[in-house]
């Protein structure tokens, strides 16, 4: 009878909860995706390239001007400079805007960098589409090299009325000689939503 294998059932429940702990990782992503919180909700437009675009912002006259601010935060372990081409730009809705960030390697070694984006207010993140972003890829800089890294995005006209300023913040992390395959960046994998983007690499 059922009652005899109670310990077995409880063991299965234990294993199930262990699995649930891991399931929380993709669930958390899905949740952020659906709700657009945590600044992770933006999508990458399909079929876009990663080549550097024009630095200048291409703006036409607007019905509603959004003030876009750019923040760069180099993280510890990175010796060099990291800064936006411009700290603020006006942007009109539904028009693509291109700008850039610069990174300079001040060390005498080859370094690999990964930028992690965040958008605030987080509510705005689901209305931002990035066609091109240096955060989609790892950046490798040889000693002394300065790189201009492109960023092209569009803000949807559905952006709620009360938002007039959007801040793009990028944290730049040095990463230790991970190969490109090994670093799955979550933004890179929004198309496979729900997939565990950081499984152990082989």
């Amino acid at each position: 009878m059922a009652i005899n294998n109670l310990p077995a059932k409880l063991t299965i429940a234990t294993i199930g909860m262990f699995g649930f702990g891991f399931a929380l990782v993709p669930l958390y992503d899905v949740f952020c995706d659906i709700t657009g919180i945590n600044g992770k909700g933006f999508e990458r437009a399909p079929g876009t390239s990663n080549q550097s675009g024009a630095i200048e912002a291409s703006i036409s006259e607007t019905q509603r001007a959004i003030n876009v601010q750019f923040i760069a935060s180099p993280q510890s372990g990175f010796s060099g400079n990291f800064y936006p081409a411009s700290t603020t730009l006006p942007a009109s809705l539904n028009r693509s805007v291109s700008t850039a960030y610069f990174a300079r390697n001040a060390s005498d070694k080859m370094i690999h960098l990964q930028a992690i984006p965040s958008i605030s207010p987080s509510e705005a993140s689901s209305y931002v589409t990035k066609m091109e972003c240096f955060c989609f890829n790892q950046q490798s800089l040889s000693p002394g090299q300065t790189r201009e890294m492109g960023l092209t995005f569009k803000i949807s006209e559905d952006l709620p009325e009360h938002i007039s300023t959007i801040t793009f913040s990028y944290s730049l992390y040095p990463i230790e000689s991970m190969s490109n395959e090994e670093t799955h960046v979550r933004i890179d994998s929004t198309d496979q939503t729900g997939g565990l983007s950081n499984e152990p690499s082989t």
Binding site: H184, I187, S201
Partner: peptide, 21 residues
């Protein structure tokens, strides 16, 4: 030890996820 990035922002993970778990 195994190069994953569950909680490592540089690899696409999220330290806040740790706190939720």
């Amino acid at each position: 030890h195994f190069g994953t990035s569950f909680f490592n922002a540089a690899g696409g993970g999220d330290p806040v996820l740790f706190q939720h778990i």
